[in-house]
């Protein structure tokens, strides 16, 4: 067919399509512009708002959201999704807090909670990869299981008492000079994820499975291996996000990170990762998480909470629709 192509309205088409291709192939550029615009808007709406304190707090929230959105990015690249992240993250923060007065202390708590998070992810991965159940259902069911166990654990640990360990609070709310300590967790996580996706064979497999599972299989990929590892990894990431969040808010409850579930999906979507798989990456997600955080901050200046939700939802649809239009096969 291309042999038979000829162009019509060359000039107009060229300029329009150049833009299209630019947006499609380098979503980071418009996303970053959008982020900057939002920050500027925030400062215009409330002069003086954008100061080091605001930046620190925005970065903190974006860090938690960014890690959780990492779970969604990885799973969405394979055409999946992880709806258990809110439950798993809350569980991890909470379980760690209950270990504060126990033998072993917080290191033990972190080991147990991340172990449990990995286990939950592993079970999800087995369900998705080996039993081939839809990831939406598996992770949802796993979320309920984790939430139930966390509640049981809560009742068990009423007597022993709990509290967010000081070490985790330091990570979550302390600063190192001007920089929030959360970055000590987030930056390594981000680097690992970026490299994982761009420079490792495993990352390639995630894209391959998401783009075309049949082609992957015919090329010798055993997708169950990839998926089991993927969901376990997603569980661990969610656990880490839960620890950071419990340090940030200095609370530990079994529902602490729940409100982040939907924004985590939204951040990945805004960052250009397709929920249908095979397209996207973590760099966009990071910017997406920042955009959502700044957006929430801007909206909180001008709008009451209910309207914020409305605008938030509308923007996600709008951005997703723009992507759908840009990446549509012509």
């Amino acid at each position: 067919m291309t042999a038979a192509t000829s162009t019509v309205g060359r000039n107009r088409w060229l300029s329009a399509s150049t833009w299209r291709n630019l947006l499609r192939d380098y979503p980071l550029v418009p996303l970053t512009i959008l982020l900057v615009l939002l920050v500027v808007l925030a400062d215009i709406l409330q002069p003086g708002l954008v100061n080091p304190g605001w930046v620190t707090s925005a970065v903190r929230q974006a860090a938690v959201l960014g890690i959780l959105a990492g779970c969604q990015t990885l799973t969405m690249l394979t055409g999946g999704i992880d709806l258990s992240v809110g439950f798993v993250a809350s569980m991890a923060g909470f379980v760690t807090a209950t270990f504060v007065h126990q033998p072993g202390g917080w290191p033990m708590g972190i080991a147990v909670s991340l172990g449990a998070a990995a286990l939950a992810g592993l079970v999800s991965g087995i369900g998705v990869g080996i039993f081939r159940v839809h990831p939406l259902i598996v992770t949802l069911g796993m979320g309920l299981v984790v939430f139930g166990f966390a509640n049981v654990w809560q009742l068990q640990s009423v007597q022993t008492g709990s509290g967010v360990p000081i070490e985790i609070r330091t990570i979550g709310s302390g600063t190192l000079g001007a920089l929030p300590n959360d970055l000590l967790v987030f930056v390594p996580v981000a680097i690992v994820l970026l490299l994982l996706l761009k420079r490792t064979g495993y990352g390639r497999m995630l894209y391959a499975i998401g783009d075309n599972p049949i082609a992957a299989r015919l090329s010798g990929v055993r997708s169950w291996q990839v998926l089991v590892v993927l969901y376990a990894l997603s569980g661990v990431l969610a656990g880490i996000a839960g620890l950071v969040q419990s340090g940030l808010s200095n609370t530990a409850s079994v529902t602490l990170v729940q409100p982040y579930l939907l924004p985590s999906v939204a951040a990945a979507v805004i960052g250009g990762t397709s929920i249908l798989g095979g397209r996207g990456g973590y760099s966009g997600t990071i910017v997406g998480a920042l955009i959502l955080t700044v957006l929430a901050s801007v909206l909180s200046i001008v709008l009451p909470e209910p309207w914020r939700q409305v605008v938030f939802g509308s923007i996600v649809v709008l951005v997703a629709a723009t992507y759908a239009r840009l990446t549509a096969e012509s």
Binding site: V265, I275, Q309, F312, S314, V317, A320, A321, A324
Partner: peptide, 15 residues
Amino acid sequence: TKVPDIVVTLSTFFI
């Protein structure tokens, strides 16, 4: 919009 239904209804959930 041809946006996947999960994303659309996730957004309208907020709205």
